[in-house]
Deep mutational scan, measured.
Amino acid sequence: MATVKFKYKGEEKEVDISKIKKVWRVGKMISFTYDEGGGKTGRGAVSEKDAPKELLQMLEKQ
């Protein structure tokens, strides 16, 4: 499965596409929420050019 690499609050993070719950576009950025486990929801964003094609496909399906 594909992963998304991004920075959040200065920390490098990587999340599996299957854990992503919601995806939306903000200008040229793709924002998303994902399941961190333990009932927590994380947030992240990547630029449109750095987003994996699976993430862009999720955006188109909504």
Score class of each variant (00 low, 15 high):
G10A: 02
V15P: 00
K21T: 14
Y8M: 07
S18M: 10
G39T: 11
L55F: 12
E12R: 11
V46G: 01
A51F: 01
P52A: 07
G44Q: 01
T41I: 10
Y8S: 09
K53R: 07
T3R: 02
E60P: 03
R25A: 15
M1R: 06
R25W: 07
E12G: 06
M29C: 14
W24H: 05
A45P: 01
D16Q: 15
K53A: 04
M29V: 06
V4A: 01
M1N: 13
S18H: 10
A45H: 13
L55K: 00
A45Y: 09
S47R: 06
Q57E: 14
K49V: 12
S31L: 08
D16E: 11
S47W: 04
M1H: 10
E54N: 07
E14P: 00
G37K: 14
E12I: 15
E14W: 03
D50N: 11
G27M: 09
L59M: 07
D50W: 12
K28E: 15
S18L: 12
I20A: 02
I20Y: 00
K13F: 08
G39F: 12
G37Q: 11
K28I: 07
G27C: 15
V4L: 07
T3G: 04
Y34E: 00
D50F: 07
G42M: 06
K40R: 09
A45W: 04
E54C: 08
Y8V: 10
M29F: 03
I20D: 00
K61C: 12
V46P: 00
G10S: 04
E14Q: 08
A2F: 08
E36K: 03
M58E: 14
E12P: 04
M1W: 13
V4C: 02
E36A: 05
P52V: 07
Y8R: 03
R25P: 11
Q62E: 10
Q62N: 08
D50I: 07
V15A: 05
S31H: 14
G38I: 07
I30K: 00
M1I: 12
K5N: 04
G37P: 06
K19S: 12
K13L: 09
T33E: 11
S18C: 14
S47Q: 08
I30A: 05
L56C: 04
T41M: 11
Y8K: 07
I17N: 02
I20W: 01
L56E: 11
S31E: 13
E12T: 08
W24R: 03
A51H: 02
V26E: 15
E11G: 11
G37H: 10
W24E: 15
M58K: 03
L56D: 06
Q57W: 14
G44M: 02
L55Y: 00
E14A: 05
T3N: 04
G39S: 10
T41K: 06
Q57H: 13
K49S: 12
S18K: 02
T41E: 11
K13Y: 11
K40W: 13
V46L: 04
R43H: 07
K61D: 12
G39K: 06
I17E: 02
I30S: 00
T41L: 07
A2W: 03
K9H: 13
P52G: 07
K21F: 13
R43T: 14
G42L: 08
E11C: 15
K22I: 10
D16H: 06
K9V: 02
Q57P: 01
G10Y: 02
